[in-house]
Amino acid sequence: MRMISMSMLIPKPRPLLNIQTGGGGGLDMQALINQRALIPQSEKIVVVMGATGTGKSRLSIDLATRFPAEIINSDKMQVYRGLDIVTNKITDDERKGVPHHLLGMIDPNADFTANNFCSMASCAIKSIIGRGKLPIIVGGSNSFVEALIENDNRFRSRYNFCCLWVDVPIPVLHSFVSDRVDRMVERGMVDEVKNIFNPNHFDYSRGIRRSIGVPEFDRFFRAKPFCDEEAQARLLDEAINQTKINTCNLACHQLDKIIRLKNVKGWKIHRLDATEVFTKQGQGQGQEEADEAWENLVVGPSTKIVSKFLFNHHATMVYSNPAPVRLGMGMAMPVAAAASTH
Score class of each variant (00 low, 15 high):
129 I>A: 01
139 G>K: 05
80 Y>D: 03
85 I>T: 08
128 I>M: 01
133 K>V: 01
152 D>V: 14
92 D>K: 14
134 L>P: 00
105 M>V: 15
145 V>F: 05
107 D>P: 00
150 E>R: 15
98 V>Q: 03
112 F>R: 07
124 A>R: 05
126 K>I: 00
100 H>I: 08
142 N>P: 11
78 Q>W: 07
103 L>P: 00
107 D>E: 13
86 V>H: 08
134 L>G: 01
108 P>G: 13
127 S>I: 00
149 I>N: 10
85 I>W: 12
90 I>C: 02
137 I>S: 05
131 R>C: 01
112 F>S: 03
129 I>R: 05
149 I>P: 14
97 G>V: 07
104 G>N: 10
145 V>K: 07
79 V>N: 04
144 F>W: 01
149 I>M: 14
148 L>C: 11
79 V>P: 00
131 R>Y: 02
147 A>K: 15
93 D>Y: 12
118 C>S: 15
82 G>F: 13
145 V>T: 13
122 S>K: 10
92 D>L: 13
87 T>N: 13
120 M>R: 07
114 A>L: 07
92 D>G: 13
139 G>P: 07
145 V>Y: 03
144 F>S: 07
89 K>M: 07
84 D>Y: 12
148 L>F: 03
89 K>T: 06
130 G>R: 02
127 S>E: 04
120 M>N: 08
79 V>G: 06
118 C>I: 14
151 N>I: 10
90 I>L: 10
78 Q>D: 01
83 L>N: 12
